[in-house]
Simulated scan of single mutants.
Amino acid sequence: MKITKVTVQVTSEPKQHAIRDAIQLLDRNGRCDVTVETDAGISGTSSTYFGRVASSPPLLGALVTEQLGPAIIGQDATMIRHIRDQLRTLTDYQGTAGLSTFGISAIDQALWDLLGKSLGVPVWKLLGANRTAIPTYAMVGWLELDVPQLQDVCARAMEQGFQGVKMKVGGGPLAEDLERIGAVRAVIGDGVPLMVDANQAFDLAEAIRRGRAYSDLGCRWFEEPLRAADTAAHVRLAEKLDIPIATGENRYGQEQFRDLFVGGGVGVVQPDLRRAGGLTDCYEIGLMAAGFGIPYASHGGGAHIHVLAALPNTIYVESGLLPADGSVTLTDGCYPLPTEPGLSSWSAH
């Protein structure tokens, strides 16, 4: 089954409702869909999401069309790890981390989709299933929402059956965070997991101060308190706090995760399919984390659910609110796994 063609479709449009975290406004819906075709008549597709910057999807599309795609024409489509390593070597001189990794990830996911379709099974079965449903929480507490709006959306998440909620912090003073956390707790109840996410907004001293306050309020984890690449600061922070530090969505490649695991700077690891290196790398990072006894919770959902189904250390998949049309429902706070061949799955965005 040889690769014959790699094509890209790009879309980018403003969001109807822009969302805000502590450091950025996410005001666009952008996508780069990559399709890999073969001489067997079977193709696989992936979708890479962009929440801001109108030019990003077409830039990724050009990278795939002009550089990465041509390099894999004629390759055996089942040699997924070999193709990943080949593309890393190809992009090493220009810098593999960054948009190059986005492109490698897109091709990696399309190849897994293709392989699953060729064998007639969902990819989670190819990876070695460990569960048939994934506990899920709702990431709904964005900073552009005022307190009544924040309470309303968290209440809706509870009505839809989610096992917990996550909210953004760090957009203002600590007192504001505490007020908003208290407002959410008032509507979800004391026993429901509540996660807080700072999106890399703090330095070490402020992360220690706020982390202690969030811990006192019983928050489940403190996500991305520091700049993602600062492993030493993560290790020092973890030593100072009782609340688990969750991070990983802005780290590229397995080496950056290995250093974090060895140092003890993470309590919940959260790779992102686009940045970590695709389905292959997220699965391998998850297994490495399991060896260190570190639980795994995805950044986002979509195709990531296949990795989560196969890992022994999965604790959560992240989601937004369920569709209003009732097309997706939870069972005991869990997402059922897709049954269609390939990577067919729900979207987290």
Rank of each mutant, 00 (worst) to 15 (best):
I107L: 10
I107W: 00
A297C: 15
V10Q: 02
L279H: 01
I3L: 06
S46M: 04
E224T: 08
L287C: 13
T91C: 15
F202E: 05
K168N: 14
L60A: 08
D76G: 08
S319W: 00
L63R: 00
A201K: 13
G189I: 10
A205R: 15
E224C: 06
A310I: 02
I19F: 14
G326T: 14
P312S: 14
G189S: 00
V123E: 07
S215T: 08
L241S: 07
E13L: 15
A309C: 02
Q75P: 00
R274W: 06
G253F: 08
K166D: 12
P271Y: 06
T247P: 04
G342M: 03
Y252P: 07
C32V: 07
A289L: 07
G302K: 08
P244A: 11
F222I: 03
V10D: 06
G172H: 13
T91K: 01
Q75H: 09
F102P: 06
A290T: 08
G116A: 00
K166C: 07
D216P: 10
G98L: 11
T35M: 11
T331H: 14
R220H: 15
I243Q: 04
H306F: 12
Y335I: 03
D76V: 10
E223I: 02
I107P: 10
W124F: 13
D190A: 15
I72M: 11
G69S: 09
H349K: 07
D39P: 05
K166H: 07
P173F: 11
D108I: 08
R227S: 02
C334L: 04
K125P: 02
G278P: 07
E13K: 15
R212F: 05
T314Y: 02
G120L: 07
A233V: 00
Q86K: 15
A297P: 03
A238C: 14
G248E: 07
G98F: 12
I243A: 04
G277H: 03
L241V: 13
N199W: 03
T314E: 07
W112L: 01
D332T: 07
Q9H: 14
T329W: 04
F102H: 15
G333Q: 09
L114G: 11
V64M: 00
V36T: 06
G218S: 01
R274A: 14
G342N: 03
V165L: 12
I245D: 04
P312I: 10
L63M: 15
T101M: 15
W112F: 10
S56V: 12
G44L: 06
A186W: 11
L143F: 01
A40R: 14
D85N: 12
I181A: 11
M195N: 06
S118L: 09
